[in-house]
């Protein structure tokens, strides 16, 4: 459980985090989303006490992080930047952290196996690839068998097998009843793992919602119908929760609140011929872009470069 109240961080003139209020609940994966520079990492650093809030507060399992007797048992965190000494082996890195809490050697071996680092555990961590470094960071986060797991951009630099591993790991941790808080700027990745979403932009809370709600708010699932008898179909489909739009005289209708299957069946019952029946789902990526458009800190010079990338991820 993580609770932030009016959490604010200012660096001189610049406000990195601006009055954030949110609660991250146990038993679900909560995605923490926002464009680059939205204040995600700063927020996470404040949660584990590396940065002190300018005002407001954040507590973990009811207390500020630093007040806990065994902090690593409360929150296991993977932060954005490398947090290792490159000259120390992965095993010794984990062992030195374990020593501060009296965590036994057997647990160190356990997380090494869990992260798939068995074969490289004795090598200098500085020689690790980006992906291996991420795995070591995750091993360190799980070391204290924490109630709350907080990962900043965990899939960065991981190969497809690693990405899949993270996805399953996050779900498994949440199923065990732990609080899982994961930041990302990849909406599509979040859509696959997160149940709940906290979206920030320019340090402000933009949305505290669920994946289906976000999509619904962004226009939801629309079905495009083309028929010669638009007026009759409109009457046949009308009902509570159904919204039908279309220009008068046009053959095309946009229907929300009904699935393509329901529309097709209704049309068949009434003997209405359909020329086209196309469900169009608003991708999470689009919903996210709509929400954060005004809050993007660093705009590219062209939007064209973003589109194929976004399309590629959704596909």
């Amino acid at each position: 459980m993580i609770e932030a109240q009016q959490l604010t961080k200012r660096y001189g003139e610049k406000t990195a985090v601006d009055g954030l209020d949110f609660t991250v609940k146990p038993g679900t994966v909560t995605g923490f989303l926002g464009p680059n520079g939205a204040g995600k990492s700063t927020t996470m650093r404040m949660i584990v006490g590396l940065d002190a809030p300018t005002s407001g507060s954040v507590t973990v399992n009811g207390q500020p992080y630093a007040r806990h007797r065994a902090p690593l048992q409360e929150v296991g965190a993977l932060l954005e930047a490398k947090s290792i000494h490159p000259g120390r082996s992965a095993y010794h890195h984990l062992r030195t952290l374990a020593l501060t809490h009296g965590i036994p050697r057997s647990r160190v071996d356990e997380v090494i196996d869990l992260a798939g680092l068995g074969s490289v555990a004795k090598k200098r961590a500085g020689a690790f690839s980006l992906g291996m470094g991420q795995r070591l960071g995750i091993a360190a986060a799980l070391l204290g068998d924490p109630q709350t797991v907080m990962l900043d951009e965990p899939v960065n630099g991981l190969d497809p097998a690693g990405v899949l591993w993270i996805r399953n790991l996050l779900k498994a941790l949440a199923d065990e009843g732990r609080t899982v808080f994961v930041s990302s700027h990849l909406m599509s990745e979040m859509a696959l793992v997160a149940d709940h979403l906290i979206i920030v932009g320019r340090g402000r809370l933009l949305a505290d919602t669920t994946v289906p709600d976000l999509i619904a708010e962004a226009g939801g699932d629309v079905v495009k119908v083309v028929t010669g008898e638009a007026g009759r179909l409109r009457d046949a489909l009308a009902g509570p929760g159904v919204d039908i739009t279309g220009r008068i005289g046009s053959e095309e209708l946009q229907v929300t609140g009904l699935s393509a299957r329901e529309i097709g069946s209704t049309a068949a019952e009434h003997g209405i011929a359909l020329f086209e029946l196309t469900p169009r789902t608003v991708s999470l990526e689009e919903a996210f872009m709509n929400l954060t458009r005004d809050a993007v800190e660093y705009h590219g010079s062209t939007t064209a470069t973003e589109t194929p990338e976004a399309a590629g991820r959704t596909a």
């Binding site: 006490g49 590396l50 902090p71 932060l79 930047a81 290792i84 490159p86 890195h93 501060t100």
Partner: peptide, 12 residues
Amino acid sequence: TGMIRSTLAAVP
């Protein structure tokens, strides 16, 4: 090296 983040997260 950045190790300090791990160190201070363990001993806040």
